[in-house]
Amino acid sequence: MSDRLVTPPQVLATPAALDLIERLRRRHGPLLFHQSGGCCDGSSPMCYAEGEFLIGDADVRLGEIGGAPFYISAPQFAYWKHTQLIIDVVEGRGGMFSLENGEGVRFLVRSRLFDDAEFAALQAAGRV
């Protein structure tokens, strides 16, 4: 076994989320996600057509889901840096400006805390 630390993904997507991402990509082209942590729709991950949302200098890129980059606002990242985000889909209405609005489903963040070794690997990689 290697002593090398494996950096865990900071964001993942369930099969249902990946299916919805693919449907939205076929309809709208390349996508991106943003998690702001603000009030109202800001507590849900928002899906946009690439170029329809301006990423800020303080936004943190967590990774990709279904080939779409996933960003989070810096203040929200400060709260959730110990947490792996798992993007899922549930029944309901999507965020007002999110592309899944009108589909009868919405993206939802589930999460789990990184264990000590995972968090140490993220720290060593400069990801937190």
Results as ranks from 00 to 15, higher is better:
residue 51 G to N: 03
residue 72 I to D: 01
residue 113 L to F: 14
residue 38 G to S: 12
residue 64 E to K: 06
residue 51 G to D: 01
residue 1 M to N: 08
residue 15 P to Q: 14
residue 126 G to P: 07
residue 46 M to R: 15
residue 47 C to Y: 09
residue 38 G to F: 10
residue 19 D to H: 10
residue 77 F to R: 00
residue 93 R to N: 10
residue 18 L to G: 00
residue 99 L to T: 10
residue 125 A to C: 08
residue 122 L to K: 06
residue 85 L to Q: 09
residue 91 E to T: 12
residue 59 D to I: 09
residue 16 A to W: 02
residue 86 I to T: 07
residue 71 Y to D: 02
residue 50 E to Y: 10
residue 116 D to P: 03
residue 62 L to Q: 00
residue 4 R to S: 13
residue 122 L to E: 01
residue 9 P to E: 14
residue 41 D to I: 00
residue 86 I to L: 13
residue 21 I to M: 08
residue 35 Q to V: 04
residue 78 A to S: 10
residue 25 R to W: 06
residue 114 F to K: 01
residue 112 R to T: 11
residue 71 Y to I: 05
residue 23 R to C: 07
residue 87 I to G: 02
residue 114 F to N: 03
residue 102 G to D: 12
residue 42 G to D: 05
residue 29 G to E: 04
residue 7 T to K: 08
residue 75 P to A: 08
residue 79 Y to K: 09
residue 79 Y to S: 05
residue 76 Q to D: 03
residue 125 A to F: 06
residue 127 R to F: 01
residue 46 M to H: 11
residue 89 V to I: 10
residue 33 F to C: 05
residue 106 R to S: 12
residue 103 E to F: 12
residue 81 K to S: 11
residue 98 S to A: 11
residue 15 P to K: 15
residue 59 D to E: 05
residue 124 A to C: 05
residue 29 G to K: 01
residue 36 S to C: 02
residue 8 P to S: 08
residue 107 F to E: 08
residue 26 R to Q: 14
residue 101 N to T: 11
residue 109 V to T: 15
residue 39 C to A: 13
residue 18 L to M: 07
residue 28 H to N: 14
residue 76 Q to N: 11
residue 60 V to C: 03
residue 1 M to Y: 06
residue 28 H to P: 05
residue 50 E to W: 10
residue 67 G to W: 09
residue 99 L to P: 12
residue 108 L to I: 08
residue 1 M to R: 09
residue 42 G to K: 10
residue 3 D to Y: 07
residue 124 A to K: 09
residue 47 C to S: 11
residue 68 A to G: 13
residue 66 G to I: 14
residue 110 R to D: 09
residue 27 R to F: 07
residue 48 Y to T: 04
residue 16 A to F: 00
residue 80 W to C: 00
residue 92 G to N: 03
residue 91 E to W: 05
residue 99 L to Q: 14
residue 53 F to L: 10
residue 85 L to H: 11
